[in-house]
Write a protein that binds this DNA or RNA. Sequence first.
DNA 1: AACCGAAACAACCGCCGGCCT
DNA 2: CAGGCCGGCGGTTGTTTCGGT
Length: 282
Amino acid sequence: MVRAPCCEKMGLKKGPWTPEEDQVLVSHIQKNGHGNWRALPKQAGLLRCGKSCRLRWTNYLRPDIKRGNFSKEEEDTIIKLHETLGNRWSAIAARLPGRTDNEIKNVWHTHLKKRLKNHQATSQDIKKQSTQVQRSDPRTPVKIDDQPDESNFTDDHHHRDGKVTTSLGCAPVSPQHSSSELSTVTENDSAAIKQEKMDSPEYFPQIDESFWSEEFPVDNANVQSGIHDGLATNDMQFQFPLSPVAASDEDVNAYISNFDDGMDFWYDLFIRAGELPDLPEF
DNA sequence: AACCGAAACAACCGCCGGCCT
DNA sequence: CAGGCCGGCGGTTGTTTCGGT
């Protein structure tokens, strides 16, 4: 079947969103929700296609988005999930509250892939050296089948849901162990263990306030109705309100006008958090 | 201070599957 | 059942920021 383009190219804007557009989108969704993305830009008076609006909302403006650097725990979680799920970013994002699939995908491509590669290289170096030592010992018989143990080092292709995905993942690692530790299960055991771990609550530990706050203690006295999740930065974590959407018009305007100084803005709101009224669930 | 390459991030594109008519 | 609409997803690209020289 012939598919209509996602939006008419004529007259519709592309590229980075302006604070004004954000304001329009946020205000509109605040008032009307987002029942129909395609119709939304027209109703809101935005010169964007519905898809663009949806992306902007889900990846950036949504109230429950946790911004800031990924913690070590989050990164480890992503690595573990990726080992199991492959490039199913949305499935991974579903396990990481406040993180979007796009964000996770970016982090994977910019940080974690490299980290794993280095880890893998280091591990293989160690393995190589160990093999060389063994071979240099005339008493040690040379192993003919010297293939790397793929159950531990998976640079292989996984077939999932009929799709083939490539994983640079490391060994299946228990959450109780650091990601640098290597499992020594056999390949036969691996699948069963993987499934077992998937089913176990330990594999996807409940991520609560303490999880995010582990490195950056939060003053929970400031966590109140309408104050939601934490924003981790390199050296601090502070709370931000449930949403500029759910806040007053004044807050929305402040949010927009301070868009470029987002961190400062959130910090201001954090300071003012005690003054904010009970915010309605959006 | 200027330049340049790398890294990081936001946004777009095209495809797919579910749902409705 | 076919066709169309819509939302969601993953891959990719474009732009901005950062760090080194």
